[in-house]
Design a protein around this nucleic acid. Structure first.
Lengths: 363, 363
DNA sequence: TTGAAAGCGGTACCAC
DNA sequence: GTGGTACCGCTTTCAA
């Protein structure tokens, strides 16, 4: 900061005046000072080949000197591309996925910045979600959108298809896998592997603390859990399965009540670090030891404020960076936008299974 | 969803065609079908008084029927207002304040939606932050911005003043309180009160687990803590004060090492729920009981995924909704934008001090 | 290689 | 009350 009043000696007064006003040069002014047409200046700046090197250099220098930047609105209007990606966040989804969501957004945002795109975020009441998408499409606010948190009975993709608005799904829409572009983590497999690990350790009473199961991801996780049990001729005890918003108290309260059962679980499979922390608290409150009396495996979205790394992570976990997913989703979408006739593509990420301090052989 | 192909009987073919293409009607077409000038239609839609009620109704109906919505880029270009607010998130701030930040954003977003504003979020590398603000101003991407997480040696406000870009600070910029608009929580007072509560309970060895103290808010919290001690002729023990990113392990690791001191603290004052959860874990690991052997008071930003409510909250806390702060910050900013000659104003929120289960008399 | 001019889709001033 | 028209700032044919 601080050199924002600098300018070429020749343009001193002029530039200083504008800067003072917070104004900036536009194409017309720039071209006038260069004694060139707007056309040529525009072409020079946008890298069109037919401009002579000399001219281009001259233009570039002056533009730099005057701090010229094209007005986005004008450019958008002229090109018909808004150079922005929309994210619509209905209140419910935001409340539920809060931190995970931000991490995803951050990843996507990095990609957008790199490619000169803006991110526009609409936080709306659930009832206004459809309208928000309509506006994005009709008022041309964004060139594409990301669908967050698809449910098992998803419908947003139909709306978007009808609006002819490109989109990428974070997660998967059951039944529309082929016709949509998406990026998802292999939830079923991750939870199957995690369950197997617990089974291998001798646990048979395993509790599942899952996200809301009308959400596609949570449903898949449960399938993975149940499949693994079934493969060993076990069936899940309904008493040991809960699903809700993945808060800390959800983990703690349920773990406590389960640990007080006559036949308590010896292990917990948990859908989020936050909930897992709650479980760990419960374990402590019951006078038990995590990793010894009770094992915990959690899914870890690799959130920056909940690090679970170090030589031996606190929690044994299935880990998949949701930030990375955000980056990739954005790349996918920008690709689709640049080539509208591409067919849908998708990315399936595998979670790592990482051994930490929270698991051990069944007591 | 699903009625997006509906249309008036007369315009059936036309509308269906456009909709199929994902296209939408523009002002010109709308006015042609109405046999009116664009001017009149525009006026009717924008609520100008000089339009006859009959005309206005006719226009409104047809617009509704054709699903007309003005193109934002065009309107922005014409009016010179971008109807968007920018939030620039440098990587460092985002990593640090992750969940709190999202909650604030969500609050602000609600306000923007209500007032027809868009929110544009730029996630950038720290080194590109200044450039991001420059672009917002120069390319007219937004009509104003919010400054997040001011440090004790803040400079962004100078840049923005130079760029003539309206802004509101979430937090306070030391030394620029008068010349800037801001919304902040009374951090010093909150921590002073919390400390007094602990002192009243007989605690004298009180530990402080604070956020990074080059951040203004964290610095103020520390002042509050130290003031309260000083008022009783106590001074803080440097061994019992730590400051860092407010993660869970930060709380746990430090609490453990402190609890192992010869003269361990009997109470912890903590800057964030997440860190407090870490402290609670440490307490458990040391075989002690929270609220009995060790007291904890934390600041609670009222994050939705970390509820600390119920009849008796888990943690005794100073609580202030950061989401509410977001709403208010947005309102302040929109106000400033609508009346540029207003002088700076600010809002000072007081945190509630709420008694939960995590505090008790000193052992 | 460069320039003139016609949009892009609205808003808003000035007549009528 | 309504309409004609000149912008807003940039991109992009079409000519030269």
């Amino acid at each position: 900061m601080s050199d924002f009043f600098r300018s070429g000696s020749k343009g001193r007064t002029f530039k200083a005046f504008w800067d003072e006003m917070g104004n900036s040069v536009n194409l017309k002014e720039l071209s006038q000072r260069l004694q060139l047409s707007q056309t040529t200046v525009s072409r020079a700046l946008n890298g069109y080949p037919e401009v002579s090197p000399a001219t281009r250099a001259r233009v570039a220098e002056m533009a730099e000197q005057l701090g010229y930047m094209p007005n986005s609105q004008a450019r958008r209007l002229a090109t018909g591309r808004s150079m922005a990606i929309g994210h619509v966040i209905p209140r419910s989804i935001h409340e539920m996925m809060n931190p995970i969501f931000l991490e995803f957004i951050a990843g996507a945002g990095e990609t957008y910045s790199k490619h000169g795109y803006d991110m526009i975020l609409s936080v709306v009441e659930d009832a206004d979600e459809e309208e928000a998408y309509r506006q994005i499409a009709t008022r041309k606010k964004a060139d594409g959108v990301i669908i967050h948190g698809p449910s098992r009975t998803e419908h947003r993709h139909k709306l978007l298809q009808g609006l002819n608005l490109p989109f990428v799904v974070h997660g998967r829409i059951p039944g529309a896998e082929e016709e949509t572009s998406w990026i998802d983590m292999n939830n079923r497999r991750a939870f199957e592997r995690a369950t197997n690990l617990l089974l291998d350790l001798g646990h048979t009473r395993i509790a599942l603390l899952n996200g809301l199961e009308y959400m596609d991801f949570a449903h898949r996780r449960r399938e993975g859990f149940e499949n693994a049990l079934a493969a060993r001729n076990l069936t899940a005890d309904p008493e040991l399965m809960r699903s809700a918003d993945m808060t800390e108290p959800f983990g703690c309260d349920n773990a406590i009540s389960m640990l007080r059962l006559d036949n308590p679980p010896t292990a917990f499979l948990v859908s989020s670090m936050i909930t897992a922390i709650g479980v760990a608290r419960a374990v402590g409150q019951c006078g038990l030891q995590t990793g010894k009396d009770v094992s915990i495996i959690t899914h870890d979205d690799a959130l920056s404020f909940l690090p679970n790394s170090g030589e031996v992570p606190i929690f044994t976990c299935t880990r998949s960076s949701v930030r990375y997913a955000g980056q990739k989703a954005a790349e996918l979408l920008l690709d689709m936008i640049s080539d509208p006739f591409q067919k849908p593509s998708s990315l399936h990420l595998d979670a790592e299974l990482i051994i930490g301090q929270s698991t051990g052989p069944a007591p």
